[in-house]
């Protein structure tokens, strides 16, 4: 059985990756929307995004929309792959216990 990914398994990071990988390739979510969808707070969302970015699972881009700064987070190909493997492992755990 494959190993669970320690970085992704943390509950909020799991939700962040679930939200980002639910989008088509190359599309991201802005910080505010991601916060709302994952039920996170400003502080902990920023810290967990940083962890995921350091691992190369997400890419963070900052731009100005009008006069407002906007941070957009996008799942990378490595992040999508890691998340897919993590989900497969979770399913294996459930299937293994049932068998």
């Amino acid at each position: 059985m494959a190993e669970l990914d320690d970085i992704i398994h943390q509950p909020l990071r799991l939700r962040i990756m679930a939200a980002l990988t639910a989008l088509p390739d190359g599309q991201g979510l802005d910080f505010t929307r991601l916060k709302k969808l994952t039920g996170a707070t400003d502080g902990n969302l920023g810290a967990h995004i940083e962890t995921l970015a350091k691992t190369g699972y997400v890419a963070v881009t900052k731009a100005f929309v009008g006069k407002k700064p906007q941070t957009t987070v996008t799942a990378t190909a490595a992040g999508r792959g890691a998340f897919a493997r993590h989900v497969a492992t979770l399913r294996e755990i459930i299937a293994g216990s049932e068998g």
Binding site: R15, A19, L37, R91
Partner: peptide, 27 residues
């Protein structure tokens, strides 16, 4: 890292919930 079946099921349910919210948000 090892987790039991119940924890795995909770994690998958959490993922499903977020994916559903993202899809609804896009709609």
């Amino acid at each position: 890292m090892t987790i039991d079946r119940r924890e795995a099921a909770v994690a998958l349910a959490d993922i499903d919930n977020v994916v559903r919210r993202v899809r609804q948000s896009r709609v």
